Amino acid sequence: MGYSNMMIMVFLAIAIAIVGFAEAQLKLGYYSESCPKAEAIVESFVHQHIPHAQSLAAPLLRMQFHDCFVRGCDASVLLDRTEAGNNDTEKTANPNLTLRGFGFIDGVKSLLEEECPGVVSCADIIALVARDSVWTIGGPWWPVTTGRRDGRISNETEALQNIPPPFSNFSSLQTIFVSKGLDLKDLVLLSGAHTIGVAHCPSFSERLYNFTGRGYGQDPSLDSEYATNLMTRKCTTPTDNTTIVEMDPGSHRTFDLSYYKLLLKRRGLFESDAALTKSSTTLSYIKELVNGPLETFFAEFSKSMVKMGDVEVLTGSAGEIRKQCAFVN
């Protein structure tokens, strides 16, 4: 082997070792020595509060999506703007104005700081709380690796650019997901989170009142009976920003297959929901889920959650461990 080829092999070996080391820093039981009770504290807090506030499970799960899609899973979605800051944070971006659960995360962080000051990241708290909240309401469980560190930057514009809006078409959804290392199957499965939770009228009212962009017209891909019901009983005006609507009517607190069944009936609430039926690939995934057992959905959803939880994480000496989740140290 020539010298140049040998050096290439050496550099490749070093690169592989570095990647392997970075991946190894995110692992199950990361806090087993530095804060042995960490995950039990999170689980206990969730089990204590979520049964009495089940509607909070959906926003806490949504919080992880919105965090991981902007700068990776680094808790940047939790940062508040400071007086010294020169830009608005992700919290102020339109997709995050209806996020709830920040106080819940702060409550968990407070307990962990009492137990192990400066050890457990806010990014890991988001991931653990999302999993435990879904599990508590009867949804799937998935293994959460830990070792994430918290980012120091949060930018409103980046949130607008990276969080898929509810009016996304199939092409834009695919582009955003691919940019995060997620495929079409992940798109279908992670959209399944819409089986729980609610939405505000402005996130879909254009489908009812202004689909042509000229102040009138209804989205033809939306079931007309469902659309009429939304207009007469829920969003009676297109600007109503106080009324909430179940994303999975009649089953919005149960983690089940109902959301996918509604998609096949053209009753997905958002344009982004309806977009999943426009591709033969994603439509096939939906039909497989609907025709299969609930356990299959749970298992596949769990795999996609694990995959999303690894998006662009900070580990090792990158980032920091915030003392307060809303502010950098």
Rank of each mutant, 00 (worst) to 15 (best):
G2C: 06
V10W: 15
F11H: 01
V19A: 05
A22S: 04
Q25N: 03
K27V: 06
Y31F: 14
E33K: 13
K37I: 05
S44F: 10
S44Q: 13
F45M: 04
S55A: 02
A57R: 04
A58C: 00
F69H: 10
R71D: 13
D80Y: 15
T82W: 15
T82F: 12
A84Q: 14
N87L: 05
T89W: 13
E90V: 04
E90W: 12
D106N: 10
K109F: 04
L112Q: 11
E114Q: 12
E115W: 10
G118S: 12
C122V: 00
A123R: 04
I126P: 05
P140K: 15
P143S: 06
R148Y: 02
E156D: 09
E158P: 02
E158T: 14
N169F: 08
F170M: 09
T175K: 08
V178K: 15
G181K: 03
L189Y: 15
S203W: 11
F204N: 00
S205V: 00
Y209N: 09
G213E: 10
Q218M: 12
S224I: 06
R233H: 15
R233C: 07
K234S: 13
K234G: 01
T236S: 11
D240Q: 12
T242N: 12
V245A: 08
E246N: 07
M247H: 01
P249D: 07
F255Y: 13
F255Q: 07
L257Q: 07
K265T: 00
K265E: 13
G268K: 06
L269G: 00
L269I: 11
E271M: 06
D273G: 06
T281N: 09
V290A: 12
G292A: 03
F297V: 02
F297M: 01
F298V: 00
S304D: 13
M305R: 12
G309D: 11
V311W: 11
E312V: 04
L314V: 01
R322A: 10
K323Y: 13
A326D: 10
